[in-house]
Design a binder for these strands. Structure first.
Length: 312
DNA sequence: AAGAACCGCAACCGCCTCATC
DNA sequence: CGATGAGGCGGTTGCGGTTCT
Protein backbone atom coordinates (compact mmCIF):
# COMPACT_ATOMS: atom_id res chain seq x y z
CA UNK A 1 0.00 0.00 0.00
CA UNK A 2 1.34 3.43 -0.99
CA UNK A 3 2.21 5.74 1.83
CA UNK A 4 -0.03 8.79 1.92
CA UNK A 5 1.63 12.11 1.28
CA UNK A 6 1.61 14.89 3.85
CA UNK A 7 2.68 18.49 3.95
CA UNK A 8 2.40 21.20 1.37
CA UNK A 9 0.52 20.53 -1.82
CA UNK A 10 2.36 20.65 -5.11
CA UNK A 11 0.88 22.47 -8.13
CA UNK A 12 0.40 19.06 -9.80
CA UNK A 13 -1.64 17.81 -6.88
CA UNK A 14 -3.69 20.98 -6.93
CA UNK A 15 -4.36 20.47 -10.63
CA UNK A 16 -5.46 16.89 -10.10
CA UNK A 17 -7.82 17.78 -7.31
CA UNK A 18 -9.17 20.84 -9.05
CA UNK A 19 -9.81 18.96 -12.28
CA UNK A 20 -11.48 16.10 -10.51
CA UNK A 21 -13.71 18.34 -8.44
CA UNK A 22 -14.75 20.46 -11.41
CA UNK A 23 -15.45 17.45 -13.61
CA UNK A 24 -16.87 14.94 -11.18
CA UNK A 25 -18.01 16.99 -8.23
CA UNK A 26 -17.67 16.12 -4.61
CA UNK A 27 -18.45 12.66 -3.41
CA UNK A 28 -16.94 10.68 -0.60
CA UNK A 29 -13.61 12.40 0.08
CA UNK A 30 -11.64 9.18 0.29
CA UNK A 31 -13.04 8.32 -3.16
CA UNK A 32 -12.07 11.77 -4.40
CA UNK A 33 -8.51 11.21 -3.25
CA UNK A 34 -8.36 7.78 -4.90
CA UNK A 35 -10.11 8.66 -8.14
CA UNK A 36 -8.15 11.85 -8.62
CA UNK A 37 -4.95 9.86 -8.37
CA UNK A 38 -3.75 11.58 -5.24
CA UNK A 39 -1.63 9.97 -2.56
CA UNK A 40 -3.51 11.96 0.03
CA UNK A 41 -6.10 11.07 2.62
CA UNK A 42 -9.65 12.26 2.03
CA UNK A 43 -9.43 14.69 4.86
CA UNK A 44 -6.40 16.37 3.37
CA UNK A 45 -8.20 16.71 0.02
CA UNK A 46 -11.25 18.16 1.68
CA UNK A 47 -9.16 20.72 3.54
CA UNK A 48 -7.21 21.70 0.46
CA UNK A 49 -10.39 22.16 -1.53
CA UNK A 50 -12.25 24.12 1.11
CA UNK A 51 -9.38 26.35 2.15
CA UNK A 52 -7.57 26.93 -1.10
CA UNK A 53 -8.96 25.53 -4.35
CA UNK A 54 -12.66 26.32 -4.11
CA UNK A 55 -13.51 28.67 -6.98
CA UNK A 56 -15.69 30.95 -4.89
CA UNK A 57 -12.91 31.85 -2.48
CA UNK A 58 -12.12 35.48 -2.02
CA UNK A 59 -8.41 36.16 -2.23
CA UNK A 60 -6.38 38.81 -0.52
CA UNK A 61 -6.51 40.67 2.75
CA UNK A 62 -9.83 41.21 4.39
CA UNK A 63 -11.43 44.61 4.02
CA UNK A 64 -12.04 46.87 7.01
CA UNK A 65 -15.74 46.03 6.65
CA UNK A 66 -14.98 42.34 6.86
CA UNK A 67 -12.76 42.92 9.87
CA UNK A 68 -15.54 44.80 11.60
CA UNK A 69 -17.94 42.00 10.83
CA UNK A 70 -15.54 39.33 12.06
CA UNK A 71 -15.11 41.17 15.32
CA UNK A 72 -18.83 41.61 15.65
CA UNK A 73 -19.58 38.00 14.82
CA UNK A 74 -16.89 36.81 17.18
CA UNK A 75 -18.50 38.84 19.92
CA UNK A 76 -21.69 36.92 19.22
CA UNK A 77 -20.39 33.47 18.40
CA UNK A 78 -17.03 33.14 20.08
CA UNK A 79 -14.56 30.76 18.43
CA UNK A 80 -17.15 29.21 16.17
CA UNK A 81 -15.04 29.87 13.13
CA UNK A 82 -17.13 27.85 10.74
CA UNK A 83 -20.27 29.76 11.67
CA UNK A 84 -18.48 33.05 11.33
CA UNK A 85 -17.09 31.95 7.98
CA UNK A 86 -20.54 30.93 6.83
CA UNK A 87 -21.57 34.56 7.12
CA UNK A 88 -18.55 35.92 5.28
CA UNK A 89 -18.86 35.00 1.62
CA UNK A 90 -15.63 33.70 0.15
CA UNK A 91 -13.81 33.39 3.45
CA UNK A 92 -12.91 30.14 5.17
CA UNK A 93 -13.00 29.21 8.81
CA UNK A 94 -9.26 28.62 8.73
CA UNK A 95 -8.64 32.04 7.27
CA UNK A 96 -10.80 33.77 9.85
CA UNK A 97 -9.25 31.78 12.66
CA UNK A 98 -5.76 32.73 11.49
CA UNK A 99 -6.82 36.33 11.10
CA UNK A 100 -8.20 36.40 14.60
CA UNK A 101 -5.26 34.65 16.19
CA UNK A 102 -2.72 36.90 14.56
CA UNK A 103 -4.15 40.30 13.76
CA UNK A 104 -6.90 40.72 16.30
CA UNK A 105 -5.06 39.21 19.22
CA UNK A 106 -2.13 41.41 18.44
CA UNK A 107 -4.34 44.46 18.41
CA UNK A 108 -5.86 43.48 21.73
CA UNK A 109 -2.42 42.95 23.15
CA UNK A 110 -1.30 46.37 21.99
CA UNK A 111 -4.13 48.20 23.66
CA UNK A 112 -2.89 50.56 26.34
CA UNK A 113 -2.67 49.05 29.77
CA UNK A 114 -3.55 50.83 32.98
CA UNK A 115 -0.35 49.39 34.36
CA UNK A 116 2.72 50.18 32.31
CA UNK A 117 4.29 46.84 33.12
CA UNK A 118 1.18 44.91 32.15
CA UNK A 119 1.03 43.91 28.53
CA UNK A 120 -1.57 41.18 28.73
CA UNK A 121 -5.22 41.73 27.86
CA UNK A 122 -6.23 39.88 30.97
CA UNK A 123 -8.12 42.00 33.42
CA UNK A 124 -6.37 43.61 36.28
CA UNK A 125 -8.21 41.74 38.97
CA UNK A 126 -6.75 43.84 41.72
CA UNK A 127 -8.38 46.94 40.29
CA UNK A 128 -11.48 45.27 39.04
CA UNK A 129 -13.74 47.63 40.90
CA UNK A 130 -11.62 50.67 40.59
CA UNK A 131 -11.86 52.85 37.54
CA UNK A 132 -9.70 55.67 38.74
CA UNK A 133 -6.08 56.49 39.18
CA UNK A 134 -4.76 55.37 35.81
CA UNK A 135 -2.96 57.25 33.19
CA UNK A 136 -4.84 56.56 29.97
CA UNK A 137 -3.47 56.88 26.52
CA UNK A 138 -6.13 55.25 24.33
CA UNK A 139 -6.26 56.49 20.79
CA UNK A 140 -9.12 57.05 18.41
CA UNK A 141 -7.92 53.90 16.68
CA UNK A 142 -8.56 51.94 19.85
CA UNK A 143 -12.00 53.43 20.10
CA UNK A 144 -12.72 52.53 16.49
CA UNK A 145 -11.57 49.03 17.22
CA UNK A 146 -13.58 48.36 20.33
CA UNK A 147 -16.78 50.02 19.20
CA UNK A 148 -17.91 47.21 16.89
CA UNK A 149 -17.87 44.95 19.90
CA UNK A 150 -20.61 47.04 21.38
CA UNK A 151 -22.64 46.74 18.24
CA UNK A 152 -24.54 43.80 19.51
CA UNK A 153 -27.68 43.20 21.40
CA UNK A 154 -26.27 39.86 22.45
CA UNK A 155 -26.34 39.26 26.16
CA UNK A 156 -24.03 36.33 25.76
CA UNK A 157 -20.36 37.05 25.40
CA UNK A 158 -18.01 34.29 26.43
CA UNK A 159 -15.96 34.60 29.57
CA UNK A 160 -12.97 35.72 27.55
CA UNK A 161 -14.99 38.27 25.63
CA UNK A 162 -16.47 39.67 28.79
CA UNK A 163 -13.03 39.87 30.31
CA UNK A 164 -11.57 41.61 27.32
CA UNK A 165 -14.49 44.01 27.13
CA UNK A 166 -14.14 44.82 30.80
CA UNK A 167 -10.51 45.59 30.40
CA UNK A 168 -10.95 47.61 27.27
CA UNK A 169 -13.86 49.53 28.65
CA UNK A 170 -11.87 50.47 31.68
CA UNK A 171 -9.08 51.74 29.48
CA UNK A 172 -11.10 53.89 27.18
CA UNK A 173 -10.74 57.49 28.22
CA UNK A 174 -14.25 58.45 27.23
CA UNK A 175 -15.59 55.93 29.71
CA UNK A 176 -12.99 56.63 32.30
CA UNK A 177 -14.12 60.20 32.29
CA UNK A 178 -17.77 59.45 32.59
CA UNK A 179 -18.68 60.52 29.10
CA UNK A 180 -21.15 57.70 28.84
CA UNK A 181 -23.32 59.49 31.27
CA UNK A 182 -26.76 58.01 31.09
CA UNK A 183 -29.66 59.16 33.17
CA UNK A 184 -29.80 57.42 36.50
CA UNK A 185 -33.48 56.74 36.11
CA UNK A 186 -36.25 57.26 33.64
CA UNK A 187 -36.44 56.25 30.01
CA UNK A 188 -33.39 55.55 27.98
CA UNK A 189 -30.82 54.50 30.49
CA UNK A 190 -30.16 53.27 33.95
CA UNK A 191 -26.50 53.70 34.54
CA UNK A 192 -24.43 56.71 35.27
CA UNK A 193 -21.29 54.75 34.70
CA UNK A 194 -19.99 52.35 32.09
CA UNK A 195 -21.56 48.93 32.32
CA UNK A 196 -19.20 46.38 33.70
CA UNK A 197 -19.32 42.93 32.23
CA UNK A 198 -18.74 40.18 34.69
CA UNK A 199 -19.18 36.54 34.25
CA UNK A 200 -18.75 33.71 36.67
CA UNK A 201 -19.44 30.56 34.77
CA UNK A 202 -20.65 29.12 31.54
CA UNK A 203 -22.70 26.04 31.05
CA UNK A 204 -20.82 24.79 28.02
CA UNK A 205 -23.24 21.99 27.32
CA UNK A 206 -26.07 24.37 26.66
CA UNK A 207 -24.32 27.55 25.65
CA UNK A 208 -26.04 28.96 28.64
CA UNK A 209 -24.23 31.76 30.31
CA UNK A 210 -24.78 31.91 34.00
CA UNK A 211 -23.72 34.67 36.25
CA UNK A 212 -23.09 37.20 33.53
CA UNK A 213 -24.22 40.50 34.80
CA UNK A 214 -23.72 44.18 34.63
CA UNK A 215 -22.35 45.85 37.64
CA UNK A 216 -22.94 49.47 38.27
CA UNK A 217 -19.75 51.32 38.95
CA UNK A 218 -19.66 54.97 39.83
CA UNK A 219 -17.78 57.45 37.77
CA UNK A 220 -17.66 60.97 39.04
CA UNK A 221 -18.19 63.90 36.78
CA UNK A 222 -14.68 64.30 35.49
CA UNK A 223 -14.59 66.58 32.48
CA UNK A 224 -14.33 64.73 29.16
CA UNK A 225 -11.07 64.68 27.29
CA UNK A 226 -11.16 67.26 24.55
CA UNK A 227 -9.03 65.11 22.33
CA UNK A 228 -11.17 62.03 22.32
CA UNK A 229 -14.94 61.94 22.35
CA UNK A 230 -17.57 64.14 23.85
CA UNK A 231 -21.17 63.41 24.43
CA UNK A 232 -24.11 65.61 25.05
CA UNK A 233 -27.30 64.26 26.47
CA UNK A 234 -30.12 66.14 24.83
CA UNK A 235 -32.86 63.93 26.19
CA UNK A 236 -33.26 60.61 27.86
CA UNK A 237 -33.49 58.83 24.53
CA UNK A 238 -31.15 60.98 22.57
CA UNK A 239 -27.59 60.39 23.58
CA UNK A 240 -25.51 62.29 21.13
CA UNK A 241 -21.89 61.40 20.70
CA UNK A 242 -19.37 63.44 18.86
CA UNK A 243 -15.69 63.26 18.26
CA UNK A 244 -13.22 65.32 16.33
CA UNK A 245 -14.12 63.56 13.12
CA UNK A 246 -17.51 62.98 11.61
CA UNK A 247 -18.23 59.64 13.21
CA UNK A 248 -21.31 59.51 15.34
CA UNK A 249 -21.24 56.71 17.82
CA UNK A 250 -24.68 57.10 19.32
CA UNK A 251 -25.72 53.75 17.91
CA UNK A 252 -23.07 52.04 19.96
CA UNK A 253 -24.48 53.36 23.15
CA UNK A 254 -27.94 52.27 22.07
CA UNK A 255 -26.46 48.84 21.77
CA UNK A 256 -25.02 48.97 25.23
CA UNK A 257 -28.51 49.76 26.41
CA UNK A 258 -29.67 46.79 24.40
CA UNK A 259 -27.25 44.57 26.26
CA UNK A 260 -28.56 45.93 29.50
CA UNK A 261 -32.13 45.43 28.38
CA UNK A 262 -31.49 41.87 27.34
CA UNK A 263 -30.11 41.09 30.74
CA UNK A 264 -33.38 42.24 32.20
CA UNK A 265 -35.30 40.13 29.75
CA UNK A 266 -33.40 37.10 30.85
CA UNK A 267 -34.06 37.86 34.45
CA UNK A 268 -37.75 38.54 34.55
CA UNK A 269 -38.88 38.84 30.96
CA UNK A 270 -39.29 42.57 31.28
CA UNK A 271 -37.34 45.34 29.72
CA UNK A 272 -36.29 48.16 32.00
CA UNK A 273 -38.88 50.52 30.59
CA UNK A 274 -41.52 47.92 31.31
CA UNK A 275 -40.32 47.47 34.81
CA UNK A 276 -40.14 50.83 36.42
CA UNK A 277 -39.35 50.76 40.09
CA UNK A 278 -37.80 47.36 40.06
CA UNK A 279 -34.49 48.27 38.60
CA UNK A 280 -32.16 47.85 41.51
CA UNK A 281 -33.65 44.55 42.59
CA UNK A 282 -33.38 43.22 39.08
CA UNK A 283 -29.70 43.91 39.01
CA UNK A 284 -28.95 41.33 41.67
CA UNK A 285 -26.11 39.46 39.95
CA UNK A 286 -26.64 36.14 41.60
CA UNK A 287 -30.15 35.89 40.26
CA UNK A 288 -29.45 37.18 36.83
CA UNK A 289 -29.11 34.26 34.47
CA UNK A 290 -29.00 34.33 30.73
CA UNK A 291 -31.65 32.51 28.83
CA UNK A 292 -30.87 30.00 26.15
CA UNK A 293 -28.51 31.38 23.58
CA UNK A 294 -30.54 31.34 20.44
CA UNK A 295 -27.97 31.59 17.70
CA UNK A 296 -30.38 32.40 14.94
CA UNK A 297 -31.92 35.12 17.05
CA UNK A 298 -28.54 36.63 17.58
CA UNK A 299 -27.72 36.47 13.94
CA UNK A 300 -30.74 38.56 13.05
CA UNK A 301 -28.68 41.44 14.31
CA UNK A 302 -25.97 40.71 11.82
CA UNK A 303 -28.37 41.06 8.95
CA UNK A 304 -28.64 44.72 9.73
CA UNK A 305 -24.97 45.19 10.39
CA UNK A 306 -24.36 48.66 9.03
CA UNK A 307 -20.99 47.93 7.45
CA UNK A 308 -22.00 44.74 5.79
CA UNK A 309 -21.49 45.42 2.15
CA UNK A 310 -20.03 42.84 -0.15
CA UNK A 311 -20.63 44.79 -3.28
CA UNK A 312 -16.96 45.78 -3.53
C1' DA B 1 25.73 40.30 4.70
C1' DA B 2 24.19 36.94 7.84
C1' DG B 3 21.91 35.08 11.57
C1' DA B 4 17.97 35.75 14.75
C1' DA B 5 13.46 36.85 15.63
C1' DC B 6 9.05 37.45 14.14
C1' DC B 7 4.83 36.65 11.62
C1' DG B 8 1.27 34.80 8.58
C1' DC B 9 -0.67 31.01 6.84
C1' DA B 10 -1.26 26.20 5.23
C1' DA B 11 -1.85 21.94 6.94
C1' DC B 12 -2.11 18.45 10.47
C1' DC B 13 -4.05 16.44 14.68
C1' DG B 14 -7.36 14.90 17.70
C1' DC B 15 -11.85 15.05 19.11
C1' DC B 16 -16.76 15.08 18.26
C1' DT B 17 -21.06 14.05 15.80
C1' DC B 18 -23.74 11.55 12.78
C1' DA B 19 -25.03 7.95 9.64
C1' DT B 20 -24.83 3.27 8.53
C1' DC B 21 -24.46 -1.48 9.40
C1' DC C 1 -27.18 -0.87 20.72
C1' DG C 2 -22.37 -0.91 19.89
C1' DA C 3 -18.78 -0.63 16.16
C1' DT C 4 -17.09 1.74 12.41
C1' DG C 5 -16.10 5.22 9.10
C1' DA C 6 -16.71 9.85 7.12
C1' DG C 7 -17.15 14.56 7.69
C1' DG C 8 -16.63 18.67 10.34
C1' DC C 9 -14.55 21.56 13.63
C1' DG C 10 -11.22 24.10 16.64
C1' DG C 11 -6.57 24.02 18.36
C1' DT C 12 -1.94 23.67 17.26
C1' DT C 13 2.28 23.19 14.68
C1' DG C 14 5.81 24.28 11.70
C1' DC C 15 7.33 26.07 7.22
C1' DG C 16 8.71 29.87 4.59
C1' DG C 17 8.98 34.66 3.90
C1' DT C 18 10.03 39.12 5.97
C1' DT C 19 11.99 42.23 9.18
C1' DC C 20 15.24 43.27 12.60
C1' DT C 21 19.78 43.46 14.73
Amino acid sequence: MTKLRKGLWSPEEDDKLMNYMLNSGQGCWSDVARNAGLQRCGKSCRLRWINYLRPDLKRGASSPQEEELIIHLHSLLGNRWSQIAARLPGRTDNEIKNFWNSTIKKRLKNLPSPNASESSCEPNKKDHNNNGGFSFNSTQQDVDFIMPMFMTSSPSPTTTQATVLNTMIERLPMLEHGIMNMPASGAGGFFNAPPRFLQSEIDNDHNNIKGFYLENGVVEGVPPLESVIRTTTTSDHDLKVENKGDTNYSCYFDDINNIVNNCYISNNNKRPHENRGGVQEDLCPEELTMGEWDLEDLMKDVASFPFLDFSS
